[in-house]
Computed example of a mutant assay.
Amino acid sequence: MAERLTGRRKAAILVTLIGEDAATRLLQHLDEQEVEGVLAEVARLDVVDPSENARVLAEFQQMIQQTRGLETAGREKVRRLVQKARPDAADELLARIGADDADEEPDPADGVPRPRLPDALVHAPARTIARLLAEENDQTTALVLAFLPSQKAARILGEMPAERRAEIVARMAAMSQAAPEAVQHVGEILVTRLEQADDAMAVPVDGLGSAADRLGTLGRAAGQEIVAALEERDAELAQKLRERLFTFEIVLSVQDRDMPDVLKKVERGTLALALKGADPELQDKFFRGMSERAAQMLREEMDFLGAPRVADVENAQRVIVEAVLEMEKNGEITLEEANVVAQ
């Protein structure tokens, strides 16, 4: 079952769902403390129950969407469902249920709220809903399909046994109105069962990566400040976020005239190990900052290393990244903003 959602967790889930551009615009409207809190929660996201995603999106949608009018199932909706679910036998099935001369679906009644199924059910996979409805009677199944989007209802109908389809569609065709309380009650029962079903298992979320991506779009200075503030609350999490946010490619943002100063901060053995796993562009960046003789000696030392462990290479690169960040913080070098944070 999904845990109770706090406001901060809702915001974190929303940030991971709405895409990087939209999330960036959203974060720009928050103050620094709020951004820190939301991104810290994003970084802690490990797995998110699909029902939580649905609840957050539903609440967000309700805040920006006008209430839609009442829409009954009607014969025209039956025709669309049958044609999508069974195009090979649509005419025969429509004739059997007496819907081959269906009238147009009535327009929604102005000002009357539409009965709604819970969003967790609406957004569930069609096959999952079909399995839930397999245990319900035909009338309940018809009621649920009548208030689902047409395409999803058609897919669910296609998953039903052939012997049930005609009866379910016939009951939908005969439906002229439905009590909102009944729709809500049936929906709540199905959501309870949905949360217990195998298909409602939590899905993995790269919360740390999402937080780093969002911080990266805010720029280096803002990213540094937020990570520094987070370090006081959770040093381990802040370090993981820092490693995701500032990668070895940060060296490309160092101006060539400052590279000799950077090289003075790094032992040659560490540098050789770090460059062993680096792209040619990064290697050239370092080689341009030293004499030809020093560059040749470094290449020879790199060749002598053979095939080092990936973890050792990454640790050596991390030493250089931290040295660059420290030098930038102390005003010893200037970094070009475009290449500072991982994109």
Rank of each mutant, 00 (worst) to 15 (best):
A228I: 01
N339G: 13
F287S: 01
L230E: 09
A178L: 06
R242L: 06
N137R: 10
R155L: 13
Q83V: 13
D107Q: 04
R68A: 06
L121A: 10
L14Q: 10
I250S: 04
Q343K: 15
V78K: 02
V266P: 01
F304C: 01
A2V: 14
D261A: 13
R9Y: 10
A95R: 15
N137Y: 04
K240E: 13
S51L: 09
V227E: 04
G269I: 02
L218K: 06
L132S: 05
A124E: 11
D110Y: 09
G277I: 02
I129K: 09
A179S: 08
R86H: 11
A58R: 04
V321E: 03
G331A: 11
M327W: 04
L263T: 07
T67W: 00
H123N: 13
E3M: 11
Q196G: 06
G37Q: 14
M297N: 08
A23F: 06
G37T: 09
L93D: 02
A316W: 02
M172P: 06
L30I: 11
R293D: 05
V38Y: 13
G209N: 13
Q139W: 05
Q139G: 05
L39R: 00
T334D: 14
A40W: 07
K152Y: 14
E332W: 02
E336T: 15
D234T: 01
Q317G: 13
A124L: 08
A23I: 09
Q196V: 10
E3L: 09
E41L: 01
V341D: 05
L237C: 12
I156Q: 05
Q184T: 11
N315M: 01
L81R: 00
I226N: 10
T24D: 09
E188R: 09
Q184V: 00
R309Q: 12
M201I: 13
L27Y: 10
E322K: 07
D198Q: 15
A126I: 07
V169P: 00
V191K: 07
E232P: 04
G277D: 06
P260M: 02
G69H: 00
A174L: 11
L282Y: 03
T217K: 14
L230A: 10
A95G: 06
M201R: 15
D198A: 15
T270M: 01
V35K: 15
A229F: 02
S210T: 06
E136G: 00
E249R: 15
S210Q: 12
L215E: 06
L148G: 08
L208T: 03
L252E: 15
F287N: 01
G216D: 10
G306Q: 05
G7V: 10
A212Y: 03
A211I: 05
R86G: 00
D46H: 14
P280H: 04
R4W: 04
L305D: 07
A43L: 10
A73I: 14
E59T: 10
N137M: 03
I97T: 10
D284R: 12
Q317L: 03
A235D: 13
L121V: 11
E267I: 00
I320K: 03
E232H: 12
L121E: 11
L157M: 12
Q139P: 01
L230H: 06
F147D: 07
D21Q: 08
A85R: 08
L5P: 09
T192D: 08
G216R: 11
A174P: 03
